[in-house]
């Protein structure tokens, strides 16, 4: 009896993890998870005097807001000629110092590891770190393991509308403490100002150049250090629920 139970458990585990049996759960649970995760507080609070009208109003507002988000996504994606896949966030979890978001699109929509995900304004929110057949996992920019090659564009250049690559300063962006962004490995002699724009440099294999990340918020220079530390204020919408995954060429 014990032997047969043990064999049954082994069979179940092999089916789920080796022969893609987990897809059954992903496919069947995706709509429910999506509905649950997209719930918002205003909806849950709208139960009183004219309940039905308020619910209808809230659901219309929700559709309107979602519509606006989708239109904004389409605007910047069409302007920049990005090939993209829209994905809804259906879950999130943090465990053992890792933070991840679960997206409802996977290998079936050509998503692969290392791709960038943007919010409705075209701001970087993270990158894909694991892909299954029907879902994928997104690491947010704030995660301490997140690192990306970036360029800092001097505000003077933008004002004068000049294109001069020599004045663009390269660095490595890293998430820190799960709450802030820092650019490291920028030599001390480079002049950076608060408010300078930070964009992706395009050096990473699957991430295109020019995706906006944020603005320089603080510059820390220590006299004996080789590099300066730059704190970046991200411009992403903190309550993002839908993301565009930019596909590689």
């Amino acid at each position: 009896m014990k032997k047969s139970i043990f064999l049954l458990i082994l069979f179940c585990l092999a089916f789920i993890f080796l022969f893609k049996g987990e897809n059954v759960f992903f496919i069947s649970l995706r709509p429910g998870q999506s509905w649950l995760y997209q719930l918002n507080k205003s909806e849950s609070l709208s139960a009183d005097f004219c309940r039905e009208l308020k619910i209808e109003n809230a659901s219309l507002k929700k559709i309107q807001a979602e519509n606006k988000i989708l239109r904004e996504h389409l605007n910047f994606l069409e302007e920049d000629k990005f090939d993209f896949v829209l994905a809804k966030i259906i879950g999130q979890k943090s465990e053992a110092s890792f933070n991840w978001f679960l997206l409802n699109q996977g290998k079936d929509k050509k998503i692969k590891k290392g791709l960038a995900a943007l919010d409705q304004q075209g701001i970087l929110v993270g990158k894909i770190i694991k892909v299954e057949d029907f879902v994928s996992y997104l690491m947010p920019v704030f995660d301490p393991r997140f690192s990306l090659a970036v360029d800092i564009i001097s505000s003077n250049l933008v004002k004068e509308n000049q294109e001069n690559d020599s004045k663009i300063i390269a660095g490595i962006l890293e998430g820190e403490y799960g709450s802030i962004l820092k650019i490291k490995y920028v030599p001390l002699d480079r002049e950076i100002k608060v408010g300078d724009a930070v964009i992706t440099s395009g050096l990473e294999e699957n991430i295109k150049r020019g995706i906006i990340i944020g603005q320089v918020a603080e510059i820390n220079k220590e006299p004996n250090a080789l590099f300066q530390d730059i704190v970046v204020q991200p411009l992403l919408d903190p309550g993002f629920r839908i993301v565009s995954v930019i596909l590689a060429e």
Binding site: L36, L39, Q92
Partner: peptide, 15 residues
């Protein structure tokens, strides 16, 4: 299954 889905997808559950 319900508990795990709640844990992952319910947005109001504290971290």
């Amino acid at each position: 299954l319900i508990l795990v889905i709640g844990e992952i997808s319910f947005p109001f559950l504290p971290e």
